[in-house]
Design a protein around this nucleic acid. Structure first.
Length: 930
DNA sequence: GCAAGGTC
C-alpha cells in the first residue's frame, strides 16, 4: 500500500456516511465495521483523488460532538452572582454520551494522513466540522484537514466534492460559536435569577413540587411564550361591539339565494335603520351584474418540516413534538425521507437527490417523481388515484409548484417506501404516513376547478351580492381528503331581471375576539419571526408546557398559565422586550454578519453580551416588577421571608476575605439588611446594615474611592424616625469603608441582626470583627474605646431592637404616642446640631409620631411625619406599566376589561394589586396616582 | 437545576 494515503472521512450523521461511502465506492469493495459507538459504524473502501490512491475510512458523528458550559466553579447555582455569568469562563467539552464517538475519531485519526469533513453545508455543520478537527488534531497534529462541499447525496455532486476539496469556513463556525455563547450566558443568568428570586417566594400551584421548579428563560422559549400571552391578552381585552347588517333572501323553485349587503356591517344603528327602511319601502331588486368565473384551488406545496407539523396538528391534533417523533420513526424505518427539511420545492437538484433513492432511474425529473407515485399504485386506499395520475389520458399529472424555500441539503418530505401499514405502527404512524403520501400525490396533481357565479342586485340604491360554486373537477381533492372546497347552488339570474325578495331583514351581531393561538398558528408566528429552526421549534413549544408556562386545550389552542402570564407581565412592566422576538431577530442578524465576514465573532460577542448584561442588571434592579406581577397571581409563600436569607441577592462587591465569591445584598428573616458572601457557610464574611433601613437596592453606580473595586453603591431608604434628626432618609451609600454617614448610622442605630436572638452569636461576632477592622476609632458617642456607640453605657438607647430593653432597664416613664397610644421609645440623637438630645418616637411601623423630650416636658404636642403609605408605594412601583398597548391594538384598556375566560367563565384570583379590584390591572388603577 | 443547536 505504499503511496496510498489514509483518509478519515467524517459525516454529520450515520446515514450520510453510509450513503456517501456507497456512492464513492460504487459499492465495490465496500467493507463495514463497528466503531466504539454502536450507531456510528466505519466504512472502508479505496478511492482515487486526482490520481492519488487513497484508502478511505468513513465514519460519522451524531450532530454536535461538543457542548459549551461554564467552568466548574461557576456551574453550581449559588457559586456566583448570575451577573458574573456574562464574563465567567466557558469551555467546550465532549459530554459523556459522546465519548465513544470521540474515541473512535481519535483512534482512526492517529493512523490517517488526511481528514475530510462531510458535515452538512450549513452553519451548524461547519461548527461541528471544527469540533471534529479539534478532536482529531489533538491526537495527530500532522493531519491535512479538508472540507467536502455538497448539497445533495447524488453521485455527480459527491464525486465532484471529493475531487474539489476546500477549506472549512471559519466564519460560519464563528457565527455558531457566538450564538452558543450568547444563548448560554443569557439563558443561565436569567434562569438562575428568576428561579432563585421567585420560586420560594410564592406558592406556585401549577407545579407539583415547586422546590424543583425551574423558571427558565431562553431567547427562543420566551418569545414563543410571548406570542401565546400576547394573543391571550388580545382575547381578554376584546370588547364585543354590536353591529347591524341587512340581509336579503330570494326563494325560487330551483333554490334559495341569500344576498349579503355589500356594505358588510355598520356600527351605527340609526344609519342602518334608515337604509333598511328605504329598502323596505322600495323593495324591488334589480340584477345589476351576473359574472361567471372559473376558479382554481391549488394543491399544497411540497412538504417541509413546519408544514408537516402544522398540518398534523390541524388534521390530527397531534403535537408538533409528537409529530416529529413519529416522523423520525418512519424515517428510521425507511418509509419517508428525512423529516427535518426547510425545502418545499422539488428543484432539479432535489429531483436528482431523489434519483439516489431510485437508483437506475434516468430521465426528466418528473419521471423520478412518477417512480414514487408508481410505487403507491397497489395501495388499497389511494392506489387507484396513483394509477390515474400515471395515466396520460387523465391529464391529472402536474409538475409540483415551488414554495420558494430550499435548504440545499434535503428534499421535501416524501414517501420512500410503499406500505399499507406495518404491524408495529401506531394509529399516529399510519396517519402521518398517509399524510406524507397523500400530500406528495396532491403536489403532483392538477388543481381543483370550479365554476363560480356572482350575482349583484340593487334595492333602493343599496347593493347586495351572492355567489354560488359548482366544482367541475376535483382533481387533487380526491386524494387530499383533508381539504374541502364547498359547492353551493344558486338560482339562475339574468342582467336587468327584477324581483321582490322573499325576505329583507335587519340583523344584528357582535364582534368576536380572535381565537387563541393554535399550535399551527404558533409555529407560523415562530417561523415568521425566525424563532428556532425547523428542527427545534417543536422543542420550544414543548418547553412552554414542561415549564408550566402554557397549557394546550383539546382544540390545540394555547393559553398562558398564571406563571407564564406573570413572567411576561413582569418584564413588560419593566419596559423590557425580553419576551418579544426582536432580540432573537437582532442576534440572528449579527450571526449572519459574522458568517459572511462583515463582523468579527469577538466584536459581536462583546457588544451583545454588554447589552444583555446591562439589560440583566436593569431587570434585577427592577425586580419588584416581577414580584408584583407574581403577586397578582400567586399567594406569598410561608417560606418567603425565611428563605430570603438564602436567596441570591444583588452583588455589591467581590468578597475580600475568601476572594472567590461575591458579596451580595440580602434581607434577613427579621427584615434587616446585610451584605454577605455567597460562599457562606465556607466564608462567613458579612456586613450588617443598620436596623433602620427600610429599603435597600444595589445601584449600578461604582464607588470612586474604595478598593478593590468595583464596589457598587447601595440606595438606602431609612425609617425617618429611627435615625437621628439631621440624617436624610434617602442615602446613596457605600459599604466599602468610605461612607461616614453609613458608619455613623450603623453605630448609632445598631444592626438588626446583631441584636436578634437567633443563636447566630459566633457567626455574628466573627463577622463583626471582620467589619470592625475596617473602621476607625471607637464609640462615637462618648469617644471611649472598648465598646461601640450602640452599646455605650452613657446613652440610654442604641438600636431599634434594644429600645424596650433600654427603657425598661432604665425605668424610663413611657410616653404614650399621641397618635396611636403605643408607648413611645426614648432615643438619643447624635447629629451635629442635636447631639445627645433625647426624643420619643412611636415604635409602631404604621405611625410616625415624634417628639423631643424637652418639648414633651414643656407640654408640646409633638408631630407626625408623613410616611409613604401603601397606595403611595404602589403607585411608584407600578408607574409606567400602562399605555404600552398590552391590551391589543384597538386601544382597549384594562380598566374596561372584564376578566373572563375564553369560555365566558369569570376568572378568579386576578385582581389589581394596588386596590384589589378584580375589574382591572394595576397599570390602569384609578387609585395608583401618577 | 440554566440555552439552543445538532442528532440516535
Amino acid at each position: 500500500m505504499s503511496g496510498t494515503i489514509k483518509v478519515l472521512n467524517v459525516a454529520e450523521k450515520p446515514s450520510v456516511a453510509k450513503s456517501v461511502s456507497g456512492i464513492l465506492s460504487r459499492n465495490q469493495g465496500l467493507r463495514v465495521r463497528d466503531g466504539r459507538s454502536r450507531f456510528n459504524r466505519i466504512f472502508e473502501f479505496n478511492y482515487s483523488v486526482r490520481g492519488q490512491p487513497c484508502h478511505m475510512l468513513f465514519t460519522s458523528v451524531t450532530g454536535h460532538l461538543m457542548e459549551l458550559e461554564f467552568e466548574d466553579r461557576f456551574r453550581k447555582w449559588h457559586s456566583c452572582d448570575p451577573a458574573d455569568l456574562y464574563h465567567a469562563p466557558v469551555r467546550k467539552h465532549v459530554p459523556e454520551d459522546k465519548m465513544d464517538i470521540k474515541r473512535t475519531l481519535e483512534e482512526e485519526a492517529r493512523r490517517c494522513q488526511w481528514l475530510v469533513l462531510w458535515l452538512d453545508c450549513d452553519r451548524e455543520g461547519e461548527n461541528i466540522a471544527f469540533e471534529v478537527i479539534d478532536v482529531c488534531r489533538a491526537v495527530n497534529c500532522h493531519l491535512t484537514t479538508r472540507r467536502a462541499r455538497f448539497s445533495a447525496l447524488i453521485e455527480r455532486e459527491i464525486h465532484h466534492a471529493m475531487q474539489n476539496l476546500v477549506d472549512p469556513n471559519q466564519w460560519f463556525s464563528d457565527a455558531v460559536d457566538a450564538r452558543q455563547e450568547i444563548d448560554l450566558r443569557i439563558g443561565a443568568s436569567f434562569t438562575r435569577f428568576q428561579t432563585m428570586m421567585l420560586r420560594d417566594k410564592f406558592v406556585i400551584d401549577s407545579a407539583t413540587d415547586d422546590r424543583n421548579l425551574v423558571l427558565s428563560y431562553g431567547p427562543c422559549q420566551f418569545p414563543t411564550l410571548g406570542f401565546v400571552v400576547e394573543r391571550y391578552w388580545e382575547v381578554q381585552s376584546h370588547e364585543p361591539e354590536e353591529f347591524w347588517t341587512i340581509n336579503c333572501s330570494h326563494k325560487l323553485d330551483e333554490g334559495v339565494a341569500t344576498f349579503n349587503w355589500m356594505r358588510g356591517h355598520l356600527f351605527d344603528h340609526t344609519c342602518v335603520v334608515i337604509i333598511y327602511e328605504m329598502c323596505v319601502q322600495e323593495p324591488t331588486a334589480t340584477v345589476t351584474a351576473v359574472r361567471h368565473q372559473e376558479k382554481r384551488k391549488y394543491p399544497p406545496y411540497p412538504l417541509s418540516t413546519i408544514e408537516l407539523e402544522k398540518r398534523a396538528s390541524r388534521y390530527f391534533r397531534m403535537s408538533s413534538e409528537h409529530t416529529m417523533k413519529v416522523a423520525e420513526d418512519l424515517y428510521q424505518a425507511g418509509f419517508i425521507s428525512y423529516p427535518r427539511t426547510e425545502t418545499d420545492c422539488f428543484s432539479s437538484r432535489t429531483d436528482l437527490h431523489l434519483l439516489f433513492w431510485k437508483l437506475n432511474l434516468i430521465g426528466m425529473p418528473c419521471w423520478i417523481l412518477k417512480a414514487i407515485v408508481q410505487e403507491q399504485q397497489e395501495h388499497p386506499e389511494w392506489g387507484s388515484y396513483a394509477q390515474r395520475l400515471l395515466d396520460p389520458r387523465t391529464s391529472l399529472w402536474r409538475n409540483p409548484s415551488s414554495g420558494g424555500h430550499d435548504d440545499k441539503a434535503h428534499p421535501p418530505i416524501h414517501p420512500t417506501k410503499f406500505s399499507t401499514g406495518e404491524h408495529n405502527w401506531s394509529q399516529d404512524h399510519r396517519k402521518l404516513y398517509d399524510l406524507v403520501v397523500r400530500h406528495f400525490l396532491a403536489c403532483v396533481s392538477q388543481p381543483a376547478v370550479g365554476a363560480e357565479t356572482t350575482v349583484e342586485i340593487d334595492i333602493a340604491g343599496e347593493l347586495f351580492s351572492t355567489s354560488g360554486r359548482v366544482i367541475l373537477e376535483r382533481n387533487y381533492l380526491d386524494v387530499y381528503r383533508y381539504e374541502s372546497w364547498g359547492g353551493s347552488m344558486i338560482p339562475t339570474y339574468t342582467l336587468g331581471q327584477q324581483f321582490i325578495p322573499t325576505s329583507l331583514t335587519l340583523d344584528t351581531g357582535v364582534t368576536r375576539p380572535p381565537p387563541l393561538l393554535s399550535e399551527a398558528d404558533l409555529l407560523s408566528c415562530m417561523d415568521k419571526a425566525g424563532i428556532g429552526t425547523d428542527a427545534t421549534m417543536h422543542d420550544h413549544i414543548k418547553k412552554l408546557l414542561d415549564r408550566f408556562y402554557a397549557t394546550k386545550d383539546s382544540n390545540t389552542r394555547f393559553s398562558p398559565t398564571k406563571l407564564g402570564e406573570a413572567l411576561v407581565m413582569g418584564y413588560d412592566d419593566m419596559g423590557h422586550e425580553l419576551w418579544k422576538p426582536n432580540l432573537r431577530s437582532m442576534m440572528e442578524f449579527d450571526m449572519k454578519e459574522v458568517s459572511v465576514g462583515n463582523k468579527r465573532k469577538d466584536e459581536v460577542l462583546a457588544t451583545c453580551l454588554q447589552q444583555m448584561k446591562a439589560c440583566f442588571l436593569d431587570a434585577r434592579l427592577n425586580k419588584v416588577k416581577l414580584l408584583e406581577a407574581l403577586a397578582v397571581f400567586f399567594e406569598r409563600s410561608n417560606q418567603a421571608a425565611g428563605d430570603d436569607n438564602h436567596a441570591a441577592g444583588e452583588v455589591v462587591r467581590q468578597c475580600g476575605l475568601c476572594r472567590e465569591s461575591s458579596m451580595v445584598l440580602k434581607k434577613n428573616r427579621d427584615g434587616n439588611f446585610m451584605v454577605g458572601c455567597l460562599g457562606f457557610p465556607q466564608c462567613r464574611n458579612a456586613i450588617w446594615l443598620p436596623g433602620s433601613v427600610l429599603e435597600a437596592a444595589v445601584t449600578s453606580n461604582i464607588c470612586g474611592s474604595c478598593n478593590p473595586g468595583p464596589v457598587y453603591l447601595i440606595q438606602f431608604k431609612f425609617r425617618q424616625l429611627e435615625i437621628p434628626p439631621g440624617f436624610n432618609a434617602n442615602h446613596l451609600g457605600c459599604i466599602g469603608g468610605c461612607d461616614d454617614t453609613l458608619r455613623q448610622l450603623i453605630e448609632i442605630c445598631g444592626t438588626g441582626s446583631r441584636m436578634s436572638a437567633r443563636g447566630r452569636g459566633p457567626t455574628t461576632t466573627s463577622s463583626n470583627v471582620q467589619r470592625s477592622s475596617s473602621r476607625q476609632g471607637a464609640c462615637l458617642y462618648c469617644q471611649q474605646t472598648g465598646h461601640f456607640s450602640n452599646d455605650c453605657p452613657s446613652q440610654f438607647s442604641g438600636s431599634r431592637n434594644s429600645r424596650s430593653r433600654t427603657n425598661s432597664q432604665n425605668g424610663e416613664p413611657s410616653v404614650p404616642c399621641s397618635t396611636c397610644g403605643t408607648p413611645c421609645v426614648l432615643r438619643t440623637a447624635n447629629t451635629a446640631n442635636n447631639r445627645g438630645r433625647k426624643f420619643y418616637s412611636c415604635p409602631s411601623q404604621d405611625c410616625n409620631f415624634f417628639i423631643w423630650e424637652d418639648d414633651h416636658n414643656n407640654g408640646s404636642g409633638g408631630r407626625s411625619i408623613p410616611r409613604a403609605g401603601i397606595n403611595g408605594s404602589a403607585s411608584n412601583s407600578s408607574r409606567g406599566g400602562g399605555g404600552r398597548g398590552r391590551f391589543g391594538q384597538n386601544g382597549a384598556r384594562a380598566a374596561d376589561v372584564t376578566f373572563v375566560s375564553a369560555t365566558g367563565d369569570p376568572i378568579s384570583g386576578r385582581r389589581c394589586y394596588v386596590c384589589g379590584d378584580p375589574s382591572h390591572f394595576a397599570n390602569v388603577c384609578p387609585n395608583r396616582g401618577m
